[in-house]
């Protein structure tokens, strides 16, 4: 088990049906997650990062989704499992944390019951044992009065406390892998810090693998071991967190870094990526997908069939356009007159 990655995604393509056609929201994604590793997937809305997470969990509506490729987890391909077999993986071996704690909990069920439900599904524990474990879990996720919260309904808790309950649900059955989809986006900054610390703490104790989906590079910097940057359904760059933050290579990654206001850039102009994120129907299906947004880079810099290549040990970049990439001098902001 030691050298085997915990999760290995190979050439995953997730397509959704719109009208009569299928459009790939996740395209040819390969990614591994090891035990005790936090892999962040970063990108803007519509890049396919959440679709990727839901594909691993098998939570896309089957009748409108086509999944191709392989998702190997503990020696089995999740995509070939039946619904029943998949239900045994969900919640037991892979836990999931959702973005918005206000909506992620059933308003008519007490927090205790919602945490216990995972155990009911996956174990034969007695109700007393479940209760004990639930209260233990609540304590573990930092809830000050677990006996009381056990009996409370979600609306009686603050956002931060609810997110702790959501985390308790995700880790209730000691999963090997936790997928956290924007776990702190809906929270205030001080609560965000607490939740990040909690996740790190839990991970240190349990050696769980974590897939952290986020748009916030700050959260990535604080949490991740390895980072995959997604654009338009593809991974455009993967590297360990230190390399990526010190030496980002892909033009999209570099643009992203330049567009966040940081303490060093006070009152300077922020970098604006020209053009707009293409919609699922209008994704460029061949060539470099970022080409249209860096028009000043000549055609010959791009590959015809851009692949994710290892440019230095464990640092992968898609397309050759990064080699001679430079920011355009006249950064006039987004003056495109088009309508998406």
């Amino acid at each position: 088990m030691s050298n085997q990655p915990l999760l290995q995604i190979q050439n995953l393509r997730t397509s959704f049906r719109i009208g009569d056609d299928y459009f790939a929201a996740v395209d040819d994604v390969s990614l591994t997650v090891n035990e005790n590793e936090v892999v962040a997937i970063v990108g803007e809305s519509g890049c396919g990062k959440s679709a990727l997470a839901m594909s691993i969990m098998g939570l896309h509506p089957q009748e409108r989704t086509k999944l191709e490729g392989k998702i190997n987890f503990k020696g089995k391909n999740l995509l070939s499992l039946s619904t029943n077999e998949m239900n045994k993986v969900r919640g037991k071996e892979i836990g999931m944390i959702f973005q918005d704690p206000l909506t992620a909990l059933n308003p008519l069920m007490t927090c205790g019951k919602q945490i216990e439900e995972s155990m009911t599904v996956h174990t034969n524990m007695s109700s007393e044992a479940k209760r004990k474990r639930t209260i233990e879990l609540l304590k573990k996720v930092g809830i000050p009065n677990p006996e009381r919260t056990y009996k409370q309904y979600p609306h009686e808790l603050s956002g931060g406390m609810r997110q702790r309950v959501v985390i308790a649900i995700a880790v209730a059955c000691d999963p090997l892998l936790v997928i956290a989809d924007e776990p702190t986006t809906a929270l205030d900054v001080t609560i965000q810090a607490q939740i990040m610390d909690l996740l790190k703490d839990l991970q240190n104790q349990t050696k769980t693998g974590i897939i952290l989906i986020t748009h916030d590079l700050g959260v990535v910097a604080e949490m991740a071991d390895r980072v995959a940057v997604m654009y338009a359904g593809e991974i455009v760059e993967i590297a360990d967190v230190h390399t990526l933050f010190k030496n980002p290579l892909h033009p999209y990654t570099r643009s992203l870094f330049n567009s966040i206001p940081s303490s060093t850039s006070t009152k300077d102009r922020l970098h604006v990526i020209q053009g707009i994120v293409p919609s699922l129907k209008n994704l460029p299906r061949s060539g470099c997908r970022f080409k249209d947004r860096i028009k000043w880079i000549g055609d010959k810099e791009h590959e015809v069939n851009p692949l994710l290549r290892e440019v230095s040990p464990n640092h992968y970049v898609r397309c050759t356009c990064y080699k001679n990439f430079h920011f355009s001098d006249e950064d006039v902001g987004d003056m495109n007159y088009g309508i998406s």
Partner: peptide, 22 residues
């Protein structure tokens, strides 16, 4: 102070310090 220390630091090298500061 609490608000400002809660802002995630964009430099992963500072991770430990940031956590300690917090």
């Amino acid at each position: 102070k609490r608000l400002i220390s809660a802002i995630p630091d964009i430099n992963p090298e500072n991770r430990e310090n940031q956590m300690k500061l917090r």
